[in-house]
Each structure stands twice: as structure tokens, then as C-alpha cells.
Nucleic acid binder design. Structure first.
Length: 563
RNA sequence: UGGGCGGUCGCCAAGCGGUAAGGCCCCGGACUUUGGAUCCGGUAUCGAAGGUUCGAAUCCUUCCCGCCCAGCCA
């Protein structure tokens, strides 16, 4: 099965490992988030990779929370992370683990290293440790406590655990090489004294292992075969290897890949938090956020995210994927599954002068041209309708196919109409109403319906339409690279002031009265919309624009404007 | 300037000595009662320079550029 999938360097490694029967041909991965924030699309890449690889090779993938820093982690995050991974479509069975489950084992490992003379208790302060570490170009120097006896180290470490020393007063360090060109090998800290209540172990511990001392061993304990992580841990691999070899325990293979970057977006926990705290967005689940919670509320499907993650591939090169790629995967999925419906966002009243007053026809509309099995529905047609304001131009530019004085267009599923009069507001000059005539012989499906017109417009019957709020979302940033700023300014100056446009008097066709929160539709000619699961109600429906349709006219117009 | 890792089309990304996959974007065109979808077609000699070889993106050398590392964060 793996052969059918696109090649990438990780698959190559695993395939080769299986060929030489490494780990008895077993593949076991894990997704190891720290429960200190929300998952975003970048994590989705790691999730799809780890769970995907395990599934492809008939292996398993664990969900493990790397909760070694109680001062930053909370149980709420654990719950959100689990919900997000599940939403993406992955299942970790009963293998929900926590690094904190291994605290006692990790402590014993530390004791083992002390006994082997490979770790020591150091009394240097944080600042002193930094000074002793040296710099990128100069070697560090040995801590004065480096030569303590095994007995003394054992005693001190035990007393650290017992709470005899204040926070930060001592650490347990690995005795490696203060002159190593790899700073991670300059006697890294393994344990620190930290009196903080842990979300799982409470106050049982006052010393906590560092990530560096916990991660590799946690993988080892779980029998992980391939520890897939991001590039910045490449420098740490020699350290993890050192611990594993010193401890003589199962040795997973670490493989590093480049984390995802997206254009028109920001993807770091720090910046995401900043956006939330400064109120640039309404919260972690704001539909403009690249968090899984935000993306979900925007209306993205998990399937589209999974195919996106598959298509962008995996490599070691730092890269920024065009958000158009994500949007393409989304449209591709939604095109297949979203029922079509008509909605007018900015209504312009149209009166069909020669259509009998009071008459109502129920026109048959197809729910999806992509999938006939989705059936049809009835849409009421009457004398007074609404069309999209931007579908009429009194003075049509070149290439504008839609309605204008004297011109004909088809109303989708209805008739061909011709604009015969334009009513304007005397003061503002704004077009407030159109008068048209219809040709009864052009009804959709009838013999003469085939007459060619340049455009087909969506519409809604004024008397039958439902009022709704529509939230138009756009990229959060104006530039592909938010960091592309003029001197002095910062990335926030690139925030798109129009990333959210709320339209409160939209009109949607009556069939949408039954639209359930969380359901998706294509508003014909406009885009894909999602019934907001939080704010929408049958009394006051709210639709989020997930993504627009591809719009070639918009492109033409943009090009014309430039000229 | 120490160490680690990268540099193949505008953006991702295959390729592993035999003469540059694919996707996105973009540009044409066909079709179309969504200017949607779909369908055709178009666009790179592989960071640079040397070298090895019948033959190199793939091997060697040197150089250039980018990213990461000096948390008791992960």
C-alpha cells in the first residue's frame, strides 16, 4: 500500500527500516503536544503525518501529552487538543499517555545516570549556568560542582525531590562535555526544582524533568519506533541519543521535518495568543484563526485538511505554502458535498412588471450538479425579487455580462428578464430598484428556454426570502508574509482591516429555514457557507463564508483596474 | 566567526549516475442556465564555479545564500 502514495523522505526511511526488519518491522509513532495552547494547522501536518504513517504501515500512533512544565500547562488544553485530533479524524484508541505518567520512571533513570557517574547535582544559579555555558564560538567551562561524588549526588538529588531546597537553587545536570560545539551537550539540565501544581500529579512533585530529559525516554518507554519531530530538534538528537545509550533502553529513531508555514497567516503560539489578547480576533475559535478550532468554525472539513497535508508533502526545507493550496483542497471537497442554494448578500429589489401580481410559481432547482442523487427542491418565484447589487451596473464596463439597462440575463431556474427601468434615490443617486420584464417562453426547461444570454443570476423571492446575517471572512493579513513591513512597523500593521465583514440584511431562499447549525451550503455564484454553530439560531440564522468560489470576473476586473 | 540542517518552475514537491513526476498559482482554449465545476494545452536543466564520467539535479571540491542552537520553554 505505501507504494501507491507519493514518496517522501520519511516514507523512504520507514520502508527501508521494514525491509531490513528493524524493530521487527513494527511502526509505532506518536503525536506529542504540550498542553499549553491550541492546536493549529501546523499541528495538523504533524498529526496527519504521525497518524497517517502508522495507518499506512499497519502500525499504531499514540497521543502523548508532553506535560513536563506545570507552570504553563492546563487540563483545558488537554481536552481541546483531544477534541481537535478527533475532529481531524484520528483515533488513538486507549493509548492516551502523559509524560507525567513516567515521572517516577524518569526519576529512576536519573538515579541510574547519577550512579553511573553521568549526572550531577549543580548549585549554580540560572545566570551562572548561562555564564558557564560559553557562547557559540567559545567553549564553556566546568561547573565547580561537576566532580561531586556519586554518594553526594544521590543524597542531594533525593533531597531535591524531598523538597529540602528552594526553587531554582539546584539542578540535576548530565555530565557530558562543556566544550562541545553543540550547546545542547554542554551539561544540559535534566531536573529543576519547581513548586507548581501539576494538572495531573498535583503537588506530588517539586522537581520536574526538562523536556530534553523526558521526551526521548518517554518515546522509548512507549516503544516508539519513529519519533517524528520538527527541525529545531535536530540539534537535540545527539543528546537524546546520549541519554538512551547511557540508559541502555529502547532507542527510537528521531526524524526531523520542516514545520508548516502559510501565506497570509501567522502560525506561532505566541502570535496567535497576541491576536486573541489584543482583541484582533474574537477568540481562539475565531473563524479567521488558523487554529483547528477556528478553521472548524469557519466551515473547513477535516477531509480537506487531511488532503492538504498529504499534498504539501514532507521535507526538511523551510517553506511557506500558498494558502491558495489549502483553499483549493477545501473547494474541491465542498464542491462534491455542499448542496447548492440561492442567497442574496446585498439585496437589490427587482420588480417584474409583466409578471402577474400575487402569482407564485414553485420552480424546481437542482441541489447539486455534481451529484444528482442529492435531488431537487422547489424555489418560489414571484413578481418582486432580490438580486445581488453587484450583478447590476448602470454603466457596464467591458466584459461585464450581467444586468444593465436594456440587457437580458437569465434568472437561475427561472426566466430570462430584461431591465427596462432604473429607480434611484434622488439624493444619493443610488440605485434602489429595477424594473424588468420577463419572457414567459423562456422558463427553464421549456422548449424555448435555450435562448443564449451571457449571464445567469441568482435571486430570491422578496416575499418568501428569509433574512439572515452573513459573515464574510477573508485572509487575516494583507500581505503573503505578515513580516513584510516598512521600517519601524510590526507584523500587526499588516492585519487586514476587512478580514471580517458582517452583513445583516441578507436574504436567503426559504429552504434554508431548516438549516442546522454546522451544516454547509454553496450559495450559488458566491461561495461556500457554514451555519455558525455558536451564534446561529432558527430565529436569526448566521452563515460564515468558509471560502469564495473561484471568481474569474473578479480577476478580470482587478486587472482592468490596474490598467 | 563554532555546530547542525537546507538550497530542483512564482508556491509546495518527486528524483538516489542514464538524460527534470505531480499538485497549487498563472496564461490560453473547449464546455457550461453557478464568469462555479469539468476538460484540453502552455510554462524549469536543478544556488554558483570547477572536477570525475560515455553520461550528473544525482559523485567529488570550493564558494555563495537561507534556517536553527547560548530557557532551570517545548
Amino acid at each position: 500500500m505505501p507504494d501507491a502514495l507519493p514518496s517522501n523522505f520519511i516514507r523512504n526511511i520507514i520502508t527501508e527500516d521494514i525491509n531490513v526488519n528493524k524493530n521487527d518491522g513494527r511502526v509505532h509513532t506518536r503525536f506529542p503536544p504540550e498542553p499549553n495552547g491550541y492546536l493549529h494547522i501546523g499541528h495538523a501536518k504533524a498529526i496527519c503525518l504521525n497518524f497517517g504513517l502508522a495507518a499506512e504501515y499497519g502500525g499504531l500512533c499514540n497521543l502523548r501529552f508532553d506535560d513536563t512544565n506545570p507552570s504553563k500547562e492546563e487540563v483545558e488544553y488537554v481536552d481541546c487538543i483531544k477534541a481537535d485530533v478527533r475532529w481531524l479524524g484520528f483515533d488513538w484508541g486507549d493509548r492516551e499517555y502523559y509524560a507525567s505518567d513516567y515521572f517516577e520512571q524518569l526519576y529512576q533513570y536519573a538515579v541510574q545516570l547519577i550512579k553511573a557517574g553521568m549526572a550531577y547535582v549543580c548549585d549554580l544559579s540560572a545566570d551562572e549556568i548561562r555564564e558557564y555555558r560559553g557562547t557559540l564560538t567559545e567553549p564553556g567551562k566546568d561547573s565547580p560542582y561537576r566532580a561531586r561524588s556519586v554518594e553526594e549526588n544521590l543524597d542531594l538529588f533525593e533531597r531535591m525531590r524531598a523538597g529540602e531546597f528552594p526553587d531554582g537553587s539546584r539542578t540535576l545536570r548530565a555530565k557530558i562535555d562543556m566544550a562541545s560545539p553543540n550547546l545542547n551537550m554542554r551539561d544540559p539540565v535534566m531536573y529543576r526544582i519547581l513548586r507548581a501544581t501539576h494538572h495531573r500529579t498535583g503537588d506530588r512533585w517539586c522537581i520536574y524533568p526538562t523536556y530534553d530529559f523526558a521526551h526521548g525516554q518517554s518515546d522509548s518507554i512507549e516503544g516508539i519506533t519513529h519519533s517524528i519531530c520538527t527541525l529545531e530538534f535536530e540539534d537535540h538528537r545527539p543528546l537524546y541519543d546520549w541519554f538512551l545509550d547511557a540508559l541502555k533502553i529502547h532507542h527510537p529513531q528521531q526524524i526531523e521535518f520542516a514545520r508548516l508555514n502559510l501565506t497570509y497567516a501567522v502560525l506561532s503560539k505566541r502570535r496567535l495568543l497576541d491576536l486573541v489578547e489584543r482583541g484582533h480576533v474574537t477568540g481562539w475559535d475565531d473563524p479567521r484563526m488558523p487554529t483547528l478550532a477556528g478553521i472548524r468554525r469557519r466551515g473547513y472539513t477535516p477531509e480537506s485538511i487531511r488532503t492538504f497535508c498529504e499534498r504539501i508533502g514532507v521535507a526538511k526545507r523551510n517553506s511557506t505554502v500558498d494558502i491558495a493550496m489549502l483553499e483549493h483542497c477545501l473547494r474541491e471537497d465542498l464542491n462534491k458535498r455542499a448542496p447548492r442554494v440561492m442567497a442574496v448578500l446585498r439585496p437589490l429589489r427587482v420588480v417584474i412588471d409583466n409578471y402577474p401580481d400575487g402569482k407564485v410559481e414553485e420552480l424546481e432547482a437542482v441541489n447539486s450538479p455534481e451529484d444528482p442523487s442529492m435531488g431537487t427542491r422547489k424555489v418560489p418565484f414571484s413578481r418582486a425579487l432580490y438580486i445581488e447589487t453587484e450583478d447590476f451596473r448602470e454603466d457596464p464596463p467591458k466584459g461585464f455580462f450581467r444586468l444593465s439597462p436594456g440587457r437580458e440575463v437569465r434568472l437561475r431556474y427561472g426566466y430570462i428578464i430584461k431591465c427596462v427601468d432604473v429607480v434611484k434615490d434622488l439624493k444619493s443617486g443610488e440605485v434602489t430598484e429595477l424594473h424588468c420584464t420577463y419572457d414567459p417562453a423562456t422558463k427553464s426547461g421549456s422548449a424555448q428556454s435555450g435562448r443564449k444570454v451571457k449571464a445567469t443570476l441568482h435571486w430570491v423571492s422578496a416575499a418568501h426570502a428569509i433574512e439572515a446575517e452573513v459573515r464574510l471572512y477573508d485572509h487575516l493579513f494583507l500581505k503573503p508574509n505578515p513580516d513584510d513591513v516598512e521600517g519601524g512597523a510590526d507584523w500587526r500593521s499588516n492585519l487586514n482591516p476587512n478580514s471580517l465583514v458582517r452583513l445583516t440584511s441578507c436574504r436567503v431562499e426559504p429552504s434554508l429555514a431548516a438549516a442546522a447549525p454546522g451544516s454547509r451550503y454553496q450559495f450559488e455564484r458566491l461561495g461556500y457557507f457554514f451555519v455558525d454553530p455558536v451564534d446561529s439560531s432558527s430565529a436569526a440564522p448566521v452563515f460564515n463564508r468558509t471560502v469564495t468560489l473561484r471568481d474569474t470576473w473578479a480577476k478580470v476586473e482587478k486587472a482592468q483596474r490596474k490598467r
